[in-house]
Design a protein around this nucleic acid. Structure first.
Lengths: 332, 332
DNA sequence: TTGTACGCGTTATCAT
DNA sequence: ATGATAACGCGTACAA
């Protein structure tokens, strides 16, 4: 592989000049610039990004930590991030945190050890304090899907409360008054917020929620199934069900079908996230759209603006969810 | 950030000695080793991986090119790769190729410019010749889901022909004799191979395939829907349908339902890939399992063994698909 | 076993 | 506008 030195030799200029034409930062005469460009082309020169990093103290890489690489959710997010970063010539290093505190910390350590210029984190298990301390270091971080007041500027989050509100409101407007709710793990803030939105919508319609019709799941379809069984076992009547995410909605729907309930005639269901699967299950799921791809993009833009000085970019910290009407909920 | 130099000073030894204890390669006395370790701990020393890379000419990073980051397929693959790599302390740089030749080449160039030690590629649009030339360079590559005879050792592939055979055989064993087939884009080798397997199974059962019952799709659900409509428009009778992947099966199933066909009573359908959605659609899809996660793992192991000298690893180049029986196909 | 000194391929700070 | 030259932090012959 040709080095900058060989280029300078062939072009008959110094090292420094070659570096200048590469980085376009200092004035170089048209004539010498062309000589250098020619030499580069002849030698098939490629800058060694490692050496660049060492000398400039920038790795041009941004580290991403997600809970899982598989699953329908993170792919969208990664896709948004990668797009934006690559267009800017930055590369993306990924690690998985598996929703477990130690593992998340491990992943973060790993990314730090890789000299990333910034970190984009989708973490769930790690504490606010840990993140605040981390943010206090010299390595900038952006948080996706998490809001910490002290780090508000570094958070790209969804208004989960509003989402929960919209989901429930839709059912109430369709005339339902007996609603059940399958929640996510209540120690997760998004699960809590979505539920809060549910309660707000109920209250606004003058309804009180029967705690017996609340089941706490795990955000997975098996959990949704289990919760649905528990709800049915109460023998309490309900004509509509809101689920804190689509996967649990799918699990619940399956159980409903097994029990001979028609969706949506006997039971209306609304989910949350608008995963791809929401379009595949039958009947197609009415749900709340979570613009995770856009949020990934925005996190990348945050980094580009704050770390790589792309001043022009517009930033936005909190995204609003929107209702997506399909076939799983209908009027009473 | 502390450097190796400060550690050596605090420990009262030379640079070289510190380097030796880090890399565990040369003998260092127990006493000095401990002094060094202590000094490291005191300073909170972290090796600078960039400098390590420059000096050792190894970046400890492996580049991954996939078609898309989102979608149900690549996530599994990335997950397998990341797992295996991180356990070995290597990191993973990702790029998307979007199934388009120029874009795939771009992505590869991008990864090369990042000084990866090896590349794991899931490419579809780029030519065999390009890949053979690429493999001729100094940067090792592994191909997933692609078989090129000249690069056989670098290919981790699935026996697609066998998969196509198994899918069709299942239907034939269930007594079906009138089968339709929705293929992938025939310029893709996996689409071609799966179809070849279909034909072999038909032939073995003494059946000849009616070309009018073949529709060529695009591996996406909308294509599956379109193909299904074309097939129905022929008015030719068929009681079973083989789809070259799950997404098209989902699209076809939707059209079938709209046309009042009951699956599987009126029409048996089998897919290919065993995506997560296969479990979510209704009825649950009988399909061929594509062990893409395992294959990603294996590609990572290939790199660990061949590039990072982990001799102990067992390698395997071609994987066998297996039938997964669910509810979308039944006996006549 | 330990230390010296050079090289890895750039960037950046001086001069000129 | 261009050229020397010193970092950047580490690996590794070679020497001791």
């Amino acid at each position: 592989m040709a080095t900058i030195y060989q280029v300078s030799e062939l072009a008959g200029v110094s090292l420094a000049t070659v570096s200048r034409v590469m980085n376009n930062n200092a004035r170089v005469s048209e004539a010498t610039r062309n000589k250098v460009l020619d030499a580069m082309a002849q030698l098939g020169y490629r800058p060694n990004s490692i050496a660049q990093s060492l000398a400039s103290n920038r790795s041009n890489s941004v580290g991403i930590l997600v809970s899982e690489l598989h699953g329908p959710f993170y792919g969208e997010m990664l896709s948004g991030i990668e797009n934006e970063c690559r267009a800017a010539g930055k590369h993306v290093i990924i690690a998985a945190g598996h929703s477990e505190a130690e593992s998340e910390k491990d992943g973060i350590e790993f990314l730090i050890s890789r000299n990333c210029d910034a970190l984009i984190l989708h973490v769930e298990a790690v504490s606010d304090d840990y993140l605040i301390k981390l943010a206090g270091g010299k390595l900038p971080i952006v948080l996706i899907n998490r809001y910490i007041a002290k780090l508000a500027d570094n958070c790209i989050s969804l208004d989960n409360e509003l989402g929960g509100y919209l989901a429930t409101q839709q059912l109430l407007q369709q005339g339902h008054t007996q609603l059940a709710y399958i929640a996510g793990p209540m120690w997760k803030s998004d699960a809590k917020d979505r539920y809060a939105g549910h309660l707000r919508a109920m209250a606004e319609h003058g309804l009180t929620f029967n705690p017996a019709l609340l089941a706490e799941g795990d955000f997975r379809d098996s959990g949704g199934s289990a919760c649905m069984q528990r709800l049915l076992a109460t023998k309490l009547p309900f004509t509509a069900l809101v689920c804190a995410n689509d996967e649990m909605a799918a699990g619940a729907m399956e159980v409903a079908r097994e029990q001979g309930l028609q969706v949506p005639q006997d039971l209306s269901i609304v989910g949350f996230d608008n995963l791809i699967l929401a379009r595949y299950i039958y009947p197609k799921l009415t749900t709340i759209d979570y613009p995770i791809g856009e949020m990934g993009r925005m996190a990348a833009r945050w980094v580009l603006k704050n770390i790589y000085q792309q001043q022009a970019l517009q930033l936005k910290n909190v995204f609003e969810p929107a209702l997506v009407c399909r076939d799983s909920a209908c009027s009473l």
